[in-house]
Amino acid sequence: MNRKLMIVDDSNVVRRSIERAVNLDNLDIVGVAGNGIKAIELFKETQPDLVTMDITMPEMDGVQCVEELIELNPEVHILVVSALADKATAIEALSKGAQGYLSKPFNPKELNEAFLELLEDD
């Protein structure tokens, strides 16, 4: 069965680069969102298995959104993809329930490896 991916980032260019980079046979993109509030709405509609989450976004930041998504579904896999490269932010996101942290800038190979690592845990 294919897994469902939702992409959350306030940059359209980054969202599209993630869409192009996804290169796993069993992963379908079910939605994209530009901020945390839209991400929660879309999450309820599409019930993704995997989410890429930016942190610095307007309306609601990624760390708060991670917390809310985990409350909705503790089983969801969340990969934070952020320019914030300090350890404390990564630890905070992971403590809220994210399972992976990839620093921007990223390349397609790194992104797909991070997806595989998260999905392997199942």
């Binding site: 306030d10 940059s11 359209n12 260019v13 980054v14 610095t56 976004m57 307007p58 952020s82 320019a83 914030l84 490269a85 300090d86 404390a88 932010t89 620093s103 921007k104 800038p105």
Partner: peptide, 30 residues
């Protein structure tokens, strides 16, 4: 829109990466 977007994203990524040296209290805006 994409030209403006990538301009902001470059500024954001370089500034965010600096937190590797400056730490979490180097807070950046969108």
């Amino acid at each position: 829109a994409n030209i403006a977007d990538i301009t902001g994203e470059i500024a954001n990524t370089i500034s965010g990466n600096v937190r590797r040296s400056y730490g979490k209290n180097f807070m950046i805006s969108v």
